[in-house]
Amino acid sequence: MLVQHLSPLASSLFSLLAIVSLFLSFVMLGSRWLKNYLYAFAAESWTIAALSAAVGYYGSYPELYLIAILTVLFRGVLLPYLIWRIIRRLEVDREIHEILQPSSGLVIGALFVMFALAVSYRVAAEFHLELTVAVLALTVMLSMKLIGFLMLAVRHEAISQVLGLLVLENGIFLGSQILVPGMPLLIELVILFDLLIIVACFGVLVGYLLTHVGTTSTLDLKRLVG
């Protein structure tokens, strides 16, 4: 178990990177400009890549270097580029009708983090890991999950929903780097690749929405009820 035998330096480095990623999801939550979401998402992916490399170095998992490079390439460069291309095609550059003010969103996000911390502490206590970075990893994983769902629920622009989905995935990916660094390489590779296909599909769908429905705001998708 990696987290049990970490040097203090490594432990604080992991914590720093995890907290930076969490902070970046709050940046996404508190902003209403689509471009800002995108920059925050790209920065988050780079942070996670750095985390992969750090875990690879301190835990001697050389294959994580490969994961780090692919994370930078896929999540840090290619996905933001694909999404940027979609945004450029759209006429909108910000959320127009907000259900929730960004400030209220931040408060709810903070409550989610507290809830996630409580759950993580409880789970980590089962393994006597309360004093390790595992608590933080679990907290960030669960709270990014919850924040992602919050973004899905309160944002209407198709593209911010896609980004919300990617935050969900980033959270899982971040947590898995610290908790299960030895997970078979194949699965991680396929999941990375899978993400690329998802975004490509979303790109096509957003195009369809634009041509056939005439809007990319999901607020206008209300024909099907009952």
């Binding site: 369809y208 056939h212 999901t218 024909r223």
Partner: peptide, 11 residues
């Protein structure tokens, strides 16, 4: 390729 099926696909 009609509005309803797009909406369904998106959801």
């Amino acid at each position: 390729r009609v509005a309803e099926s797009m909406e369904a696909a998106w959801k």
